[in-house]
């Protein structure tokens, strides 16, 4: 008796097991189909941001989603994606932006020098940078940090970056820190998908559409030069800088990395970066390192200069100097 009952039990168990298995497979397949459909639709509409967009917007988004890495695009492809993005900006935000895809100039390597004995900590540069680069106003993202340090304090890891009082304070000096556009940049090496690279004119840029937001580069940078979009960047339409660059100040999305680009949209047109132009004290010197007659070369030749954490071998193109 016992054995028969056992047998019955066993059969029953096996049957239920089979049922479970079958049921599981079916459920799985159903789920997979649903997920694929949902995922596909989300892809088409840019991760579900606008499920009720127009047909044109949908087509543009679809094409945008499947475009390649900026570095692998031909010039025609770049022009196309730029046109698509301009149209999308018009459709989504109602803004007439002009996005450039201008490449680097020949015989140009950008360099920057910061005069620590002249900076007064007015922070006009920070405000100009936020405005020019369409930085997120909600999280108060800033590319530039100005550190207030006591005289004689040459320790680069200390300093008050959150000061808010009348400046310049007695017995203090000010030191601006931003992306140093290292020649041997650790952030580039850290990127697992090659979404960040050094342009031939020395600017380290990010392809915002290729970035997966893993933040390895942020961890790799010894200078805290990179910023992450934790939320969707918000810029009031009236403050939006319309003149944009694909690798520069075009609108980022949530979950991508961004950083100072030496205002690539300005510098490739021959203009100074917004911070250098805004500085009321003339502490910021910008120029072409390959031009023997440039101001930056004069500074490097005639002034006492140093670079931050030079011993790391990152080879930054950003020098500090004093009078």
């Amino acid at each position: 008796m016992d054995s028969r009952e056992n047998k019955k039990d066993l059969i029953q168990k096996r049957n239920t097991h089979q049922d479970e298995k079958l049921c599981g497979r079916r459920e799985f397949l159903k789920g997979a189909v649903k997920a694929a459909a949902l995922g596909g639709s989300m892809m088409m509409t840019g991760c579900g941001t606008s499920l009720t967009g127009s047909k044109e917007e949908f087509v543009l988004e679809w094409k945008e989603y499947f475009k390649g890495n900026y570095r692998l695009m031909t010039q025609e492809e770049r022009d196309e994606t730029v046109r698509r993005m301009e149209r999308l900006a018009k459709l989504k935000m109602g803004a007439d932006v002009k996005i450039s895809s201008r490449g680097p100039r020949k015989q140009v390597l950008y360099g920057y020098a910061f005069n620590i004995s002249r900076c007064k900590g007015y922070m006009d540069c920070v405000a100009a940078c936020v405005k020019e680069n369409n930085l997120d106003r909600k999280s108060k993202t800033q590319y530039i940090r100005i550190f207030e340090k006591e005289h004689g304090n040459m320790n680069v890891t200390s300093g008050n970056g959150k000061y808010f009082h009348e400046v310049p304070a007695e017995n203090h000096f000010y030191m601006g820190v931003q992306c140093f556009h290292c020649e041997n940049a650790p952030c580039i090496k850290a990127c697992p998908i090659k979404a960040t690279w050094r342009e031939p004119d020395g600017i380290v840029v990010v392809d915002y559409n290729w970035c997966i937001g893993c933040r390895y580069c942020m961890a790799a940078c010894p200078y805290w030069g990179r910023r992450f979009n934790w939320n969707k960047p918000e810029v009031p339409l009236k403050d939006l800088t319309r003149k944009q660059h694909y690798l520069g100040n075009r609108m980022r999305t949530k979950g991508v990395m961004e950083k100072c680009t030496f205002c690539v949209q300005r510098t490739r047109e021959g203009k100074m970066p917004a911070c250098a132009e805004a500085c009321p004290t003339g502490s910021r010197v910008f120029g072409n390192l390959l031009d023997p007659k440039s101001e930056i070369r004069y500074v490097l030749k005639n002034k006492k200069v140093f670079r931050m954490k030079e011993d790391l071998g990152t080879d930054p193109k950003y020098w500090y100097f004093m009078d």
Binding site: K120, A127, V130, F164
Partner: peptide, 14 residues
């Protein structure tokens, strides 16, 4: 000589 004044903006902690 440059005058003392309030900075144009301020920074949050990183």
């Amino acid at each position: 000589k440059f005058a003392k004044k309030w900075p144009k903006t301020y920074s949050l902690a990183l």
